[in-house]
Write a protein that binds this DNA or RNA. Structure first.
Length: 568
DNA sequence: CATACCGACTCAGAAAGATCGTC
DNA sequence: GGACGATCTTTCTGAGTCGGTAT
C-alpha cells in the first residue's frame, strides 16, 4: 500500500473505502502527534481615553477601559439597541467598576470619544503604504508559521484556528439570552494540550502553565478549552484540507450516496406509517417525511433559559405549523442561527390528516411531535442503513438536487457561451439547493445601489438601440453624437450585438435579485458532493477555480480527478 | 427503559480582508 | 493607468448534530 508518492502528497483516496473507513473507525486516529501549541492574542494596550458620565470624563483602570472599549467598538451595531445586550454588558462592567464607582448607570455613559479613537486607529491602519502593509504581513506570517501545521504520523497537516479567541462581548444570534456577556481572556491555564506522549510539550507563555496536557489519540484536536459563556468545549482542530478531515468529508458523501439504495424503502415505509394505529408511529412517519421532503434538521432539545429559542423537526411546536385547506401545511419558525423558515407545502392527504390530529387539543406552545425525539428517530433510521441519521438526508437531497438540476440545464449550454454565462447556469442549479436547505444571508449592503446601476446601464443600452434602429430606417442627415456605425450592414450587426448585451444585462439583474438573500456558498462547501461540480466543470469546459476557491480546492483534493460522467 | 448530560465533531452567516473591474 | 467601490475569499466563532455514558 504505497500512499506516499514521490511528490509528497498523501493520496489517501487511492485506497478502498473500506480501508479509509477502518482508518477513521479505529480507536487510534494517530500514532504520533507533534505541534507547537496555540497562539494567544496580544495583551490589551490602554489608550487612556475616558468614558463621559453625565457629561464629565471618567478615567478608568485598564481592565475597566478594555471592557468599555469592547462596548464602544459595537456602538454602531444592532446589538446596542437591544435591552438584553445592554443588561448583560452592564452587569459585567458594573462588577469591574466595583462598588461606589462614579458610574452608576449605563444610560448616562457616553462612549463616543473611545469610538472616535477606534475609528482613527482604523484609518491609520488603512492609510499605511502598500510597502508597510506587505512588510507587516510578512512579519506576521513568519510569527504564525510555527503554529500553522502539526506533524501527524510524520505528515504535515494544517491546523485550523490556532489563534485563541480574544476577549470580547458575546454576540449570540437572534434573541440570545446571553448576548452582551463578557467573554473573558482565555489563559493558558484554561487550555488542555493534546500531543504525542513522546513529544516535547510546547512551552506556555512565561509565568503560566497549561491547564492540562493529554495524549489522547482517539480524537482529532490539538488543544481544547471551555467556553465559559455556554459551558461548552471548544477545540483547536485540523483544517478542512487536512487528510483526516477530508477523509471524513469524503465518507460523508459516500454514506449519502448509499442512501440511494434504501431511500425507496424508507419512503414506502413512512407512507405506511401515516396510517398506523399508534400515534408514535404516525409521528415518526410524518417527521421523517418532513426531514426528507423539506430538508429540515432533526431538532434536538434546547434550553430556552440559556439559548435562543430555535427549533428543528422534532422540536417543532404547534405554533410553528398551520393547516391550509384543502391539503397544505404552512411552516413558520426560527431554525439554526435564528434563520426564519417560511414555507407553505402541498402534502398528501394522509399527512394533512395526521398533522390535524397531532395538533388537536394542544396548546400553541405544545410539541407537535410529543411522542418522538431525535434519538428515537435516528435509532429507527439505523434499521435501514449503518451510519444513517437525519442529517444524511440533507446531504443526500442537496447533492441529488444539484446533480439533477445541472443535468436539466446542461442542454442549454452551447459551445459559444462565455465562462461567465456557464457559471451563471451553475449558480441557478446551486440556488435550488440553497433554497431547499434554507441557506440565507443578509442582503448585501450595496444591493440597492448596484441594482440601480444595472438598471441605468440597461436603459442606456436601450436608448442606444432605439437610435440604431431609427438610423436604419432613415439615416440621419448629419452625424449625431456619439457616432453610429456608417453602413446599414454594420448598423444591423451592432443592433444584434446590443440586443444580446441587453439580454445579458437583464439576466444578470434577475440573478442578482434572486440571490439577494440566498447564500450559495454554504451548500457548495458542506452539502454538494464536489465530484458533481468537478465533473460538470470538465464537461462544460469551465475552470474549477471559477466555482471552488483555493480553500475549497484544498478541501476537496479527492474529488479533483473524478471522471467527467460522475453521477451522484 | 428513559432521560439528562456532555464530548467531539460538522455546519452557519457575519465581518474582515483581498482582489477585481470600471471610470 | 490608478483610485475606488463592488465583489469574492478567508477568518471567526456561534450553533447545530449525534453518539456514548451516567443516573
Amino acid at each position: 500500500m504505497d500512499t506516499k508518492p514521490d511528490d509528497g502528497v498523501y493520496k489517501w483516496w487511492a485506497q478502498s473505502d473500506d480501508t479509509i473507513q477502518s482508518i477513521l473507525n479505529s480507536d487510534q486516529k494517530w500514532q504520533t502527534l507533534k505541534h507547537n501549541g496555540v497562539l494567544f492574542p496580544p495583551d490589551y494596550q490602554p489608550h487612556s481615553i475616558p468614558v463621559y458620565y453625565d457629561g464629565k470624563p471618567v478615567k478608568l483602570d485598564p481592565e475597566q477601559e478594555e471592557v468599555a472599549t469592547m462596548y464602544a467598538s459595537m456602538l454602531e451595531s444592532d446589538y446596542i439597541q437591544k435591552k438584553q445586550f445592554n443588561e448583560n454588558f452592564w452587569a459585567a462592567w458594573k462588577e469591574l467598576l466595583g462598588k461606589n464607582h462614579t458610574i452608576k448607570s449605563l444610560a448616562k455613559c457616553d462612549f463616543s470619544k473611545i469610538w472616535e479613537h477606534l475609528l482613527t486607529e482604523k484609518e491609520t491602519k488603512l492609510n499605511r503604504t502598500s510597502e508597510e502593509k506587505k512588510a507587516e504581513k510578512e512579519l506576521k506570517a513568519k510569527f504564525e508559521d510555527a503554529y500553522k501545521y502539526a506533524l501527524v504520523d510524520g505528515r504535515k497537516e494544517k491546523v485550523q484556528q490556532f489563534k485563541i479567541e480574544p476577549p470580547g462581548l458575546f454576540r449570540g444570534r437572534g434573541t440570545h439570552p446571553k448576548m452582551g456577556m463578557l467573554k473573558k481572556r482565555i489563559q493558558p491555564e484554561d487550555i488542555t494540550i493534546n500531543i504525542g506522549r513522546l513529544e516535547d510539550v510546547p512551552p506556555p507563555p512565561t509565568g503560566h502553565k497549561w491547564g492540562g496536557v493529554v495524549s489522547n489519540n482517539t480524537v482529532l484536536w490539538v488543544a481544547a478549552f471551555k467556553d465559559a459563556i455556554n459551558n461548552k468545549n471548544k477545540y483547536v482542530q485540523f483544517a478542512s484540507g487536512s487528510s483526516m478531515k477530508a477523509m471524513n468529508d469524503y465518507l460523508k458523501y459516500q454514506t449519502a450516496r448509499s442512501l440511494k439504495d434504501c431511500i425507496e424503502k424508507i419512503r414506502e415505509d413512512y407512507k405506511q406509517q401515516w396510517t398506523e394505529k399508534q400515534e408514535s408511529d404516525r409521528q415518526l412517519g410524518v417527521a421523517i417525511y418532513f426531514i426528507d421532503k423539506l430538508a429540515l434538521r432533526v431538532g434536538n432539545e434546547k434550553d430556552d433559559e440559556e439559548e435562543a429559542d430555535t427549533v428543528g423537526c422534532c422540536s417543532l411546536r404547534v405554533e410553528h405549523v398551520s393547516l391550509v385547506a384543502p391539503s397544505s401545511i404552512k411552516f413558520d419558525f426560527l431554525g439554526k442561527d435564528s434563520i426564519r423558515y417560511e414555507n407553505t407545502v402541498e402534502v398528501e392527504k394522509e399527512v394533512y390528516k395526521c398533522v390535524k390530529g397531532f395538533i388537536e387539543g394542544k396548546k400553541k406552545s405544545d410539541m407537535l411531535f410529543h411522542k418522538i425525539n431525535p434519538s428515537k428517530l435516528n435509532d429507527h433510521l439505523k434499521s435501514y442503513m449503518e451510519k444513517l441519521s437525519a442529517k444524511v438526508f440533507r446531504t443526500y437531497n442537496a447533492s441529488i438536487t444539484l446533480d439533477r438540476e445541472l443535468k436539466k440545464l446542461e442542454r442549454e449550454i452551447t459551445s459559444d457561451m462565455s465562462v461567465a454565462e456557464k457559471v451563471s447556469i451553475f449558480n441557478s442549479a446551486n440556488r435550488q439547493v440553497a433554497i431547499l436547505c434554507n441557506h440565507q444571508r443578509a442582503a448585501p449592503k450595496t444591493f440597492d445601489t448596484s441594482v440601480e446601476t444595472m438598471e441605468k446601464k440597461i436603459e442606456d443600452q436601450e436608448t442606444y438601440l432605439e437610435r440604431l434602429q431609427q438610423a436604419l430606417k432613415e439615416p440621419p442627415k448629419k452625424p449625431t453624437q456619439p457616432l453610429l456605425p456608417k453602413t446599414p450592414e454594420s448598423i444591423s450587426s451592432k443592433i444584434e450585438a446590443i440586443k444580446k448585451k441587453i439580454d445579458d444585462l437583464k439576466q444578470e439583474k434577475k440573478m442578482k435579485i434572486e440571490n439577494k438573500t440566498v447564500s450559495l456558498t454554504t451548500s457548495r462547501t458542506n452539502y454538494c458532493d464536489p465530484r458533481i461540480t468537478i465533473a460538470w466543470c470538465k464537461r462544460t469546459d469551465v475552470p474549477v477555480a471559477k466555482l471552488f476557491s483555493k480553500t475549497l480546492q484544498d478541501k476537496f483534493p479527492w474529488a479533483l480527478d473524478c471522471p467527467n460522467n460522475y453521477t451522484f
